[in-house]
């Protein structure tokens, strides 16, 4: 993989040198980004100017919308949403890890839990909204509950996969040193699960945000309510600004988790690519 990258780097270099200075600069990733992202912003601005702010606010409108959000205090609404998000997500991690360990590490655990986790996986969580409202109301518990229902599953499933994936030859190695069953679990299984756990946490975080947004859109409260109001009043500049902030909260949170992961797993297992996994 690394070699392939280096190869394409030199190939690109060779063809670019013919084009002079511009070509040489084009080799740099951030120059490419500057150019392409610049084009996207210009196109966005132009399209916005043509269609007008009631249809598609321009880039600058969106920036001004962000300023208005800050000045008019709408960010406080978003902070409350963020708090509910974090509580639900923290619950998902704290409960999801042990459940995943049991599900993946014990045959009996799988017998008891496996089919519910599978059912949870295939069910569109959105279908739970009308029920959750009746069970938990429209306030804090309901929102935390939805966030939990969206995100805990991914922590559980990834941790369980990690437990099933523990290398048999490393277990054998530990046994050859006379390790007891307990020692194999503590010293071999748990450290091997850590990268999977982080994969699950990262994925779960993304789904926690999805849960938060849909929970509030459903009851028209918090950030969701704000979005609905802004859409009705066609205040699209602020709407776009909020949408970008939500996307940024996702990106920022997942890079925080990634940094944490690099610190906790310095042996370099962190490069594991996350994708949704099939339960069981």
């Amino acid at each position: 993989m690394v070699d392939a990258r280096a190869l394409s780097q030199t190939r690109r270099g060779a063809s670019a040198s013919a084009l002079g200075t511009a070509g040489r600069l084009w080799r740099y990733k951030w120059i490419q980004r500057g150019v392409v992202w610049g084009i996207i912003v210009v196109a966005w601005q132009t399209f916005g100017l043509i269609r007008g702010p009631f249809y598609f606010p321009t880039f600058t409108d969106t920036i001004l919308g962000f300023v208005r959000l800050v000045v008019e205090g709408d960010l406080i609404v978003m902070a409350a949403s963020l708090q509910q998000l974090l509580v639900g997500f923290a619950l998902a991690v704290v409960i999801g890890i042990p459940v995943g360990l049991i599900l993946g590490g014990s045959r009996s655990g799988e017998a008891v839990l496996g089919h519910y986790i599978n059912a949870w996986y295939v069910t569109s969580k959105e279908a739970l909204l009308p029920l959750m409202i009746i069970l938990l109301g429209v306030g804090f518990e309901y929102r935390v509950g939805i966030v939990f229902a969206f995100s805990a599953l991914y922590v559980i499933v990834n941790v369980a996969t990690g437990m099933r994936d523990v290398s048999p030859s490393l277990i054998e190695t530990a046994r050859s040193f006379g390790a007891s069953r307990r020692q194999v679990i503590v010293k071999i299984a748990l450290p091997s699960v850590v990268p999977f756990m982080f994969a699950g946490i990262r994925l779960g975080y993304g789904f926690a945000i999805k849960g938060m947004v849909i929970a509030e859109l459903w009851v028209l409260g918090g950030t969701g309510g704000l979005l609905a109001d802004l859409a009705l009043q066609r205040e699209l500049d602020r709407y776009f600004a909020i949408a970008l902030i939500i996307a940024l909260v996702g990106v920022a949170g997942s890079s925080i988790i990634r940094t944490l992961e690099r610190h906790i797993t310095p042996w370099g297992a962190g490069a594991m690519r996350t994708t949704e996994r099939r339960a069981v």
Partner: peptide, 14 residues
């Protein structure tokens, strides 16, 4: 990647 992680649902009102 950012779009993949972002909640698509937030576009529903517009």
């Amino acid at each position: 990647n950012a779009a993949y992680a972002a909640p698509i649902t937030m576009l529903v009102p517009i």
